[in-house]
Design a protein around this nucleic acid. Sequence first.
RNA 1: GGGGGGAUAGCUCAACUGGAUAGAGCAUUGGUCUUCUAAACCAAAGGUUGUGGGUUCGAUUCCCACUCUCCUCACCA
Length: 587
Amino acid sequence: MVPREFSSLIGKDLLGTFLFAGGFMMDERQTVANALSKALPDLSTEEILNKIERPKDEKNGDYAFPTFFLAKTLHKAPQLIAKDLVAKVDQEGFEKVVVAGPYINFYLDKQAVAATILQTILQDPENYGGQNIGHLANVAIDLSSPNIAKPMGMGHLRSTVIGNAIANILAKVGFNPIRINHLGDWGTQFGKLMAAYEMWGDEEAVKKDPINTLQKYYVRINTEADEHPEYADAGRKWFKKLEDGDPEARRLWKWFRAASLSRFMKIYQMLDIHFDSYNGEAFYNDKMPEIDQLLADKGLLQESRGAKIVDLSQYNLNPALITKSDGSSLYMTRDLAAALFRKRMYGFAQALYVVGAEQRNHFDQLKAVLAEMGFTWSKQIHYIPFGLMSLNGKKMSTRKGNIVQLEDVLNDSIKLARQQIAEKNPTLANADEVAKQVGVGAVIFHDLKNERTNSIDFKLADVVKFEGETGPYVQYAHARAESILRKAGQPDLKNVAIHLNGDEAWGIIKRLGQFGEVIERAAAEYDPSLIGKYALSLAKDFNQYYAHNRILVDDEGRESRLALVQAVSDVLKSALALLGVKAPDEM
RNA sequence: GGGGGGAUAGCUCAACUGGAUAGAGCAUUGGUCUUCUAAACCAAAGGUUGUGGGUUCGAUUCCCACUCUCCUCACCA
């Protein structure tokens, strides 16, 4: 069966591949459905499955079946239906099945479920929660995409870490992600920068500190352009020269690009994020004439106010501007060329664009134009917007200098992590490396824990917080687990018989069992925050268990508890890895 | 004005896609380290889910209207 929500969220092309392929809790849900279907012969298993829910409150069991919807057809009160029904339900394999008002509550066999889940994790921790529904199909992901000659701000962090996490998640369910850094190394803004350099440029200063110096020029020409309209013209002229292959323009372009990129690489190194392609906008410069030709052949191009446009009124969209009145290209033109190139190059099953929500209109247009061109694969393109990052309630803007540099935030966070280690764990061996993992992890996690489309007002104190619902909280739970395993001598737990008594561990067991479902949903909805929330919940479950149970005591439950600890450690590490966050063994 | 998001505890956010008493973190108040890392745990307090209608056995969730707010509406990306 394909859950309803998935069908609306993924392209129809993939619908067939997104099937539930297992995971223990899904099997348990199926078991519940089977038990019910004997008592409800008139309903299909699928109908029953859709009604089964997980109670919020643990005291109501592990699964529940509400009977309200049967009241009409059976002409009976729900409470009565539940009472009659439970007598007919096959209770084999459950701890108990009981009536609670209009609900039938199912309690799983804790011993058996715990043994299955823990053993599965310990046998193959790397692959736990993963599956192969992607069949290694390529997924092109457009992410990060900073602009050359501008510092990378917190806004770009979002695209970078969200895109990277989605890539990781898709890989986990069997797709082959291709990370493409579509550098902003082209366009009129670039012409403006060259015009500014021509007027005020100091070669030595640029060489010394390329990004900040170039940014100064860029800000200056933009602020002064109001009084000097000729600056904007100069910028357009320089861009035209660049597009026409003027040697000086090319020289400047190469120089600015290389200098900026080397600076960006420093940040990507800190984040430990790697790309399969750095083909930016410039790369598509020689691929645009084909787009122009294809559009002309289809009779889609129209003249309007001296520019060439594609009319999209039948899509209820504004016209897409393809060529400016001075003959130079636009963002749209390049994105069309890029889409076609990526389809040919990678034969993608999906192409994702992790770009801010303010560009929704652009991507609607892009898909519409591709559809008009007759490319049926335009349906495989998924725009993945994320909420705006503002500063003091206002939109961040390089031109207005209203920006927070990512590098500064990362460094602040690492510094703070280093201080905390000095206080709390002064004998830690590789303190600098761990500080980096914790500091960077906090920043990444902060950006990923909430729903993608929420807008965020930047507050440093929130980003570098290490307590409560944060990356370091999850890392800490993992480090505690590892610490116990270290003290126990890293025992081999692959084949231990599991005997966990008491209900203390049951919450953890259930959570561990849900990992696969959560990954699957995160993949279908392109939503890393589901993984973040899951990691927090599991870390919290474990911290509670840790506070109330001694693990390293010599009794018959010791090995089982250690197996539990090992499984928690493995899954926490795995969940963090999906988000691009490191899990140090000590901190 | 057109199009698209959003509004839930003082703050930042959840809520299994229509179910049982709307939950966490931060902040506040109090408690827990001679025992596996206190970046932790336990407890108290905190709510007319923006407003008004509607559908339903049942609505934070779906529909309509309104208020407020953010983004966006051709030669930027």
